[in-house]
Design a protein around this nucleic acid. Structure first.
Lengths: 149, 149
DNA sequence: CTTGACCTTGCCATCATGGGAAGCCCGAAG
DNA sequence: CTTCGGGCTTCCCATGATGGCAAGGTCAAG
């Protein structure tokens, strides 16, 4: 019989298509640190473990991590990604719900962009009026100091 | 003799033009919480105190807080505000230095805006191709799942 | 004196991420 | 078999700016 002690168990798991956290990280662009974090907050289910307590990831797990990574790159916060994952795994979903999430994210980005653009306009006006030489007079500081002038 | 016990000392200080933290907050738009925080990180010097340990702010202190508030509204992070305050208090400053800080902040905003705009463009392209009806097919999820199609 | 509003400090939470320490594990080389 | 580098584990801390809450002291008005 081939029932051996559970020593070379990681290698065995790898032969069966599993990946340790380092591999998972390398193949999904998600840092090992963040993979553990996502597990701790319940965004991904607890990973399988070897006898030595190493995390094991299946190809499906990697798929999920890549999904998360792409969603993060689109600026989705974790809470929204949870919903997206739920819809992804729901065969009876309505695409309307997904699009709604995307639209909400677009609006969110829009709000933040507008805010920053307003800051930019103010700064540019101020910088424009500042000589920017060796003299101390500076409309930028005057404005910050509240000298409406 | 008028040397009384230090009881009605806050009222006295107020008569001399000082403000407690609530007033300071109301007059500068900076929350009491943040005023204490700014003190704890050294952005503003430790406030004077009454015998009862209440913080006291002079008009100059309020001026400083308003300066900070305006700089925050322009998106400056605390570290940059420290520098701005230093320049503000330096009669021998070069306005070039101030303008340089403003330009750096503009560039910083620009980078963040561009990043978000890129996200927006991707999201809009995806949302555009999604039917958004009761059917489950969804190019948004397909993209997140890595289906390059 | 009581009461309500305000002040104090301190700790926790956010959001997503990185850094580091202490200790165990694996695989390869000697 | 021993050793050694690198990878894994958990746990704690830090970021940046802000809010919230709790326990306790203080002030001012009634």
């Amino acid at each position: 019989m081939a029932t051996r002690t559970p020593r070379p168990e990681l290698a065995e798991a790898r032969e069966r298509g599993f990946h340790n956290i380092g591999e998972a990280s390398g193949q999904t662009q998600v840092s090992a640190k963040m993979i553990r974090h996502y597990e701790s907050i319940g965004l991904i289910p607890p990973a399988a473990r070897t006898f030595a307590n190493y995390r094991l990831y299946s190809d499906a797990d990697l798929h999920r991590l890549r999904f998360i990574h792409r969603a993060r790159n689109l600026g989705f916060p974790i809470k929204q990604i949870e919903k997206l994952l739920g819809l992804w795994n729901d065969p009876g979903r309505n695409s309307a719900e997904v699009r709604q999430l995307a639209r909400a994210q677009i609006a969110e980005l829009d709000a933040r962009i507008r805010e920053m653009q307003a800051m930019q306009r103010s700064l540019e006006a101020l910088a424009h009026h500042c000589h920017g030489d060796e003299r101390p007079e500076c409309p930028i500081l005057d404005d910050l100091a509240g000298i409406v002038a």
